[in-house]
Design a protein around this nucleic acid. Structure first.
Lengths: 198, 198
DNA sequence: TGCTTTTTAGAATGATTGTTCTATATTGTA
DNA sequence: TACAATATAGAACAATCATTCTAAAAAGCA
């Protein structure tokens, strides 16, 4: 394939990341195309040529966010080099850092659940997929760890997954309220109390 | 105080409830005044006279929702006639019914957290207040129940409160995803496993 | 130098927004 | 009957919206 004409000068994913942050702060309906043009640092024409209309752009942002945010989580859970205990500790540390730092904006997917899932089938489908995949990854982790005796618990693999998933989702709302950092940390302490490591 | 002129023919709280449901479905930015005029069943002029502008109206909706949704919860927790175990069971049953019924729309306050809390200080203040009050009510309940021996647990009153609060918040997001009813029910089972009733 | 494509800026479009204004009807009390 | 308050419908307004269009500059390759 031969390239002709002026080459692209901006990076699609850089632009998507900028757009996503704007959507995140102002919401889908609350964000205007003018703000996106300014914020993404590309011209209106380039925006429409590259990303389609406003809704298309939002979907692309959500897809990119889901892809990026799932990466670290999946890599940690499926790593071969660290113990089950260490995996959990690293995930918990990562989450606590993310949701207790002052400039944290929470979770773009959780925001999308509340603003968009009900009225936008495409958003709903993407979110269902994302949360189902991470649920399955967690479940597999707990099931294997219980089976091979790395952990034991009075709770089943399903229950451990349900609880951990619930805590992860709740902190995306808690972090938007005032003075909840201690509660966020406490929740993971409570979760770890459910597990004995060998 | 003597009444003069034509009396009001619509009920403020009925109108607020209708407005709140529209905001709930479409979001603050996604709802137009025209939709509100149609949906609330009153004229545009009456709307502005009674509730001020769009933002004022949203705040009134949120205040009313907070007041109404806190009522049952508070009444149950502070009741003198039923046991601690019965209180928890009734609250749990109420929540599960609310969030697993097909026409459930979730929680208006949780929606407001994600769409509005970050950019609207007044909304933030109302939500901080609501969740802080219900947190304190729960904490008082668990503290007293532990002190007078109605319940015992390996978790402290703070931890029980943190966990229960977290579960309540997470189900407002879970209910917007597909096929999560079992998980919602499971979470309360897990919570009850943390408590021994006497 | 031509050709092609992407880049930019900004005008134009038509629809919709929140809000105010005008005008009139309704329904109570004095 | 007069007055006061609320009710209604809908026009008017200026602003903003998402999107398309116009026009020209920039940058690669043949």
């Amino acid at each position: 394939m031969v390239l002709k004409g002026r080459p692209k000068t901006f990076d699609n994913y850089d632009a998507l990341e900028k757009a996503q942050k704007i959507f995140w702060e102002k919401g889908f309906e609350g964000t205007s195309m003018c703000e996106l043009v300014s914020g993404m640092g590309i011209s209106r024409q380039s925006l429409y040529n590259t990303f389609g209309n406003k809704h298309d752009l939002f979907i692309s942002c959500l897809e990119y966010y889901i892809h990026e945010s799932s990466k670290k989580f999946r890599d940690l859970l499926t790593s071969d080099t660290i113990s089950a205990k260490e995996k959990l500790n690293q995930i918990i540390e990562m989450v606590i850092d993310n949701y207790t730092c002052p400039e944290s904006k929470g979770c773009f997917a959780s925001f999308a659940i509340q603003e968009m899932a009900q009225k936008d089938p495409e958003v709903k489908r993407l979110l269902d997929g994302k949360f189902e995949r991470s649920y399955k990854q967690m479940h597999e982790f707990f099931e294997q760890s219980l089976e091979n005796g790395k952990i034991s618990s009075q709770l089943s693999a399903e229950e451990l997954t349900n609880l951990f998933d619930s805590i992860l989702i709740s902190v995306t709302s808690l972090c938007k309220l005032s003075n909840r950092d201690d509660q966020i940390r406490s929740l993971f302490g409570i979760f770890l109390k459910q597990i004995q490591f060998s």
